[in-house]
Write a protein that binds this DNA or RNA. Structure first.
Length: 744
DNA sequence: GAAACTATCTTTTTT
DNA sequence: AGATAGTTTC
């Protein structure tokens, strides 16, 4: 957008570009402020402008502002935009994700929770492996109590700011027969022994430090004059506590906290986010101002009308109304397509994308947003067939690949010899003849001497204990290697040392010898890793970056259409958006509903709202009558959300293939009975049961041989009005509506 | 130490 | 169905 210069107005240029409500949010600098920002209302602009305004008006120096986001992407974007307004790179800012900021704080005060400054940040994989070990040691039956279930319990406690000591007996769930709390405590002890912290710990530890060390808290109170929080609706309890501790400065220091969020876009409750945090803001900060941003500059009127009508079905909202803010807000209605099955849905969507492409729309302006990952497959297949370039956002990550994780493990041991998890990973990679037996011996000594594995390994080599011959030789070489590489680090630098390490350890050689087709790619990835390493000042900095930022190499280049989940789409926008799979059971997701009831339904609805509001000009929603789930075909009824879209702004139609399919009168599916009677479920058959059924004289009878489009040939074993029980030759027994079968 | 077999689980995911 | 993780077997 071209900057508008306004020399006749006595205000900085950056303020004149805002509408009145945005400007109010930027200029209400003093005291607590809640900005309720609807989708597409310029939230990021407000946040960044406010940040810049605080600095430009001389209210604070860059390091006196704390700015928190949820994702690295949001943090990067904010940094860039603040720099752009300031006209210079923004340096020395406390700007980052909750986790990155907490990691930075924790490095300063690590000793207060028993860690050293160079503690390792564990990823999800390491966390689980560690917990498995802990559970094994405690003799918990992993069959009955799967480790990731225990992980869930622990994480939920961490999300709520509960250290093991703070978990009350009453809180101890019946998980693992009441052993969860003890497992949690043991797990935390192991983490400290390993000089490691998991993601949850970053917030938990820092919050605990701030709670129990008034001097540390006071230091931050003096330091942070302004606090800015993005996506406040997604904060969990510990994040909330952390913010509140930092924001509630003692009198007479002002409490300048500004939280920006949208209660209608809260979609992460399943990972601990508490929408109550935003609903409660005014109570937490008495005298808080509330500004609503309601002018939407993104979408057309019909899209906004559809999204608004949908979200209006939720209760307990703070209340906002999206107003079209664009001059050209007129536009096409939201389309709803009814299709026979998921394959036809893919054909219809891909066909429309092809058409749009012919009409000149860039593919990068088109997105398919699905509820669940497995849905992408049908679309991918179709787009490959048609030769439409696409990309799946949120797929496999660079740093999750085996070779990268191995190399990272080497670097972790180099950086932090106490990192047993990393040591275990690489001690026999490449194969050195140090298998289970050797590892068990090392564990034995480590336990006896109360030292890390790598120290135990050193001892074994020196004493010649437990290991003999080849194994001892191999271990000695490895340990000498680490000594050498560690010594080289200060003189050679981390990049050269890493390259040396990968060669001398035999790791690169291992892949060179590997004859599998992936091997060359893996070697490439290792080169890429070394290259990435050169962008960092130190090894420690790089390791933190990888743990916290986990940048995945999305091949963003090229004009491709995007395929992603609704969750991944939050914050993005496209000209044309497809929203397939709006069926009961899938969206809203049955599993969510089972777990969370009415609240979960509202979250699903918010997800639908997020989906619709991603679209600038064209939104196409669809549902299929049949979908393959796992192995077999399941029929499903249209999502209740489809009924919640306002008729005046929606066009409902069958797909291109409707005529040749059995969907004779597709619109009738929308006249289904009252909502209340509609159970949330995937039913075996019956999407069309509301359709007026012509009386059939040629009634089916038990024993008849029939043919079904999806299930093939079968024989009738029972008749119940219009429902037939059929024993299919291939698909097994099913109950099907008679109008879906023909005599075979 | 690797191949072969079998049991299990299939929403959303950032850090 | 298909992937994957854990087990068994050679």
């Amino acid at each position: 957008m071209a900057p508008v210069s306004a020399p006749n107005l006595p205000q900085p240029d950056y303020l004149s570009r805002l509408n009145p409500e945005q400007r109010a949010a930027v200029e209400a600098v003093d005291g607590p402020l809640l900005v309720l920002a609807g989708a597409g209302t310029g939230k990021t602009r407000v946040l960044t402008t406010r940040f810049a305004h605080i600095l430009m008006s001389g209210r604070a120096r860059p390091w006196q502002v704390l700015a928190v986001t949820f994702t690295n992407k949001a943090a990067r974007e904010m940094r860039e935009r603040v720099s752009a307004i300031l006209g210079q790179p923004a340096e020395g800012l406390w700007l980052g994700t909750f986790h990155a900021l907490c990691a930075r704080m924790l490095r300063r005060h690590a000793a207060l929770v028993g860690l050293q400054t160079n503690f390792t940040i564990l990823d999800a994989d390491d966390q689980l492996r560690l917990l498995k070990q802990v559970m094994e040691a405690a003799r918990i039956d992993a069959k009955r109590w799967p480790p990731n279930g225990t992980m869930g319990v622990i994480q939920r406690w961490k999300d709520r700011g509960l250290t093991p000591e703070r978990v009350t007996a009453a809180e101890d769930s019946d998980w693992a027969n009441g052993a969860a709390r003890a497992l949690y405590a043991a797990y935390q002890r192991r983490l400290v022994e390993l000089n490691a912290a998991d993601f949850g710990d970053l917030l938990l530890h820092v919050t605990e430090i701030l709670r129990t060390n008034p001097d540390v808290l006071a230091e931050y109170h003096r330091g942070f004059r302004y606090i800015l929080v993005d996506e406040y609706q997604d904060t969990n309890l510990v994040q909330y506590l952390w913010l509140r501790l930092l924001a509630q400065r003692p009198e007479p220091l002002p409490r300048n906290i500004c939280c920006v969020g949208d209660d209608d876009q809260s979609i992460y409750s399943w990972r601990g986010a508490e929408i109550e945090n935003i609903l409660r803001f005014e109570k937490d900060f008495p005298g808080a101002q509330v500004v609503r941003l309601e002018s939407n500059y993104r979408s057309t009127k019909p899209i906004l009308a559809a999204a608004s009508a949908l979200i209006a079905h939720n209760s307990g909202r703070l209340g906002k109304t999206l107003r079209p803010g664009r001059q050209d807000a007129e536009g096409e209605r939201v389309q709803v397509l009814s299709l026979w099955d998921s394959e036809e849905e893919a054909r219809a969507v891909a066909g429309r994308i092809e058409q749009a492409r012919r009409d000149g729309m860039p593919l990068r302006e088109i997105a398919i947003l699905v509820r669940a990952g497995f849905q992408t497959r049908a679309f991918e297949e179709r787009m490959i067939a048609l030769g439409i370039p696409y990309r799946v956002v949120g797929g496999a990550k660079f740093y999750e690949r085996a070779e990268i994780r191995d190399a990272m493990a080497y670097l972790r041991v180099l950086n932090q010899p106490a990192d047993d998890l990393a040591f275990e990973r690489i001690v026999n990679t490449p194969k050195r003849g140090l298998g289970d037996t050797a590892l068990r011996a090392m564990h034995e000594i480590a336990r006896r001497e109360a030292v890390p594995l790598s120290t135990a390994a050193h001892l074994m080599v020196e004493r010649g204990e437990a290991l003999r011959g080849k194994a001892r030789q191999a271990l000695m070489e490895l340990m000498q290697g680490f000594d050498r590489w560690r010594a080289a680090l200060p003189t050679e630098g981390h990049v050269v040392t890493t390259a040396t390490l990968l060669d001398e350890s035999g790791y690169t050689e291992m892949w060179k010898q590997d004859r599998s087709p992936e091997a060359p790619g893996r070697l490439e990835n290792l080169k890429e890793l070394v290259r990435a390493l050169s962008e960092f000042e130190s090894l420690a900095g790089f390791l933190d970056h990888v743990a916290l930022v986990m940048e995945n190499d999305e091949n963003a280049e090229g004009d491709r259409c995007s395929l992603m989940t609704l969750h991944a789409a939050k914050g993005l926008e496209f000209d044309m958006v497809f929203l397939p799979g709006w069926e009961e059971g899938l969206f809203p997701s049955q599993r969510s509903l089972d777990e969370g009831g009415e609240k979960a339904l509202e979250e699903e609805r918010r997800l639908a709202y997020v989906g619709l509001t991603r679209a600038r000009r064209i939104a196409i929603v669809s549902h299929a009558a049949n979908r393959r789930i796992y192995a077999n075909w399941t029929s499903s009824i249209p999502s209740r959300f489809l009924d919640e879209l306002p008729e005046a702004h929606v066009t409902r139609a069958g797909g291109a293939a409707q005529e040749r399919s059995r969907m004779v009168s597709a619109p009738s599916v929308f006249t289904a009975g009252p909502l209340a009677s509609r159970r949330a479920r995937v039913i075996e058959a019956g999407a069309w049961e509301v359709q007026a059924r012509p009386a059939r004289s040629d009634a089916f009878a038990v024993g008849d041989r029939i043919f079904h489009q999806k299930f093939g040939y079968g024989r009738i074993t029972g008749v119940d009005d219009d429902k037939l029980d059929i024993d299919f030759e291939k698909a097994g027994s099913k109950r099907v509506l008679d109008r879906f079968v023909e005599r075979g």
